[in-house]
């Protein structure tokens, strides 16, 4: 598999604080990589490092196969667009003027692409309105347009839907999917809004306390988030005996609750429980969400 970004043992230490700790990750080409972690887990630090805003304390990363220590890394960065934390836009300029600025920064000879970019992000009708007067969602979309000005192959978005209203979130989601599908842009999105990420990502990296806890594809995650039947009974010991008798995998959650990882015949289960002198109070089919997977993975405890 071809990777756009790889990191090897990447660490970043600030005064008395380790923001990244030996982080290793790989972002496959063409993917939407969901970089998941709590606030302060190190997501933004990683993005700052790969954007050249900060230097790693140790370890390296490669962008399109070029090592961060090589001089060519600056050239390779031209293939990348990024929105780090807040959109990089001049608030006293209009949307079109902001794009003109970025076109000049990039040395794009003609401004012809500006209307198309504005249309792509849905800001074609903003006219002479200054970016200062834009809504948060509009600023975010303008930030993405600025990041797209150099026609990048790799887009890095740091918490792109933070603080947006539902419509703003949908707009950004559709834009990211469009960019990935139509322009084949690889996207790295950092977020802690897991529900939103689950609608986009093709790959995931879970980070906690500066370390990569788990990296997997959406397909692998789907397999990991197993379907189960959550049953409520009067006696879980009796339930366990009944399920053992049926040869079914299960997990006891409390005195009255358990998850059963199999397609069960409810009548058969009821009869088996009857035989053990136990009653089935309720049964509910459940899918483990990305959220619960994440909570189980990082679990509130540190990974020292």
């Amino acid at each position: 598999m071809e990777y756009v970004l790889t990191t090897q043992g990447l660490s970043k230490r600030y005064k008395g604080f380790k923001a990244l700790d030996n982080l290793t990750m790989r972002v496959p080409k063409g993917s939407i990589y969901g970089f998941v972690g709590r606030n302060g887990a190190g997501k933004t630090t990683l993005i700052r490092l790969i954007c050249g805003l900060q230097a790693p304390t140790s370890g390296t990363y490669t962008l399109y196969g070029v090592d961060s220590g090589q001089k060519d890394i600056a050239k390779v960065r031209r293939r990348m667009g990024a929105v780090v934390e807040t959109p990089s836009i001049y608030l006293d300029l209009t949307a079109a003027d902001n794009l003109k600025e970025q076109f000049r920064v990039l040395g794009v000879p003609s401004d012809d692409g500006i209307p198309e970019l504005l249309k792509l992000v849905g800001l074609e009708d903003t006219g002479g309105k200054k970016a200062r007067n834009f809504s948060l969602g509009m600023k975010q979309r303008l930030g993405i347009a600025v990041a797209l000005a150099g026609d990048p192959d790799f887009l890095v978005l740091d918490e792109p839907v933070n603080g947006l209203d539902p419509q703003g979130i949908i707009d950004i989601r559709e834009l990211i999917l469009k960019l990935n599908r139509e322009r084949r842009i690889t996207v790295l999105i950092s977020s802690h809004i897991l529900d939103e990420l689950s609608r986009l990502a093709t790959h995931y990296g879970f980070i906690d306390s500066g370390r990569m806890v788990k990296e997997l594809s959406a397909r692998e995650l789907e397999a990991a988030c197993r379907k189960c039947l959550r049953v409520e009974v009067t006696d879980t010991r009796a339930l366990a005996r009944a399920l053992d008798g049926m040869g079914v995998e299960y997990e006891i959650l409390s005195d009255g609750q358990a998850d059963v990882f199999a397609q069960l015949n409810i009548s058969q289960l009821t009869r088996a429980l009857d035989g053990e002198g136990c009653e089935l109070l309720s049964a509910q089919e459940r899918d483990e969400s990305l959220e619960s997977y994440f909570v189980n993975l990082v679990g509130g405890a540190s990974h020292d």
Partner: peptide, 11 residues
Amino acid sequence: DGAIRSKLSVG
């Protein structure tokens, strides 16, 4: 306005 970030991140 964060513009310095976009200048550095494009090389």
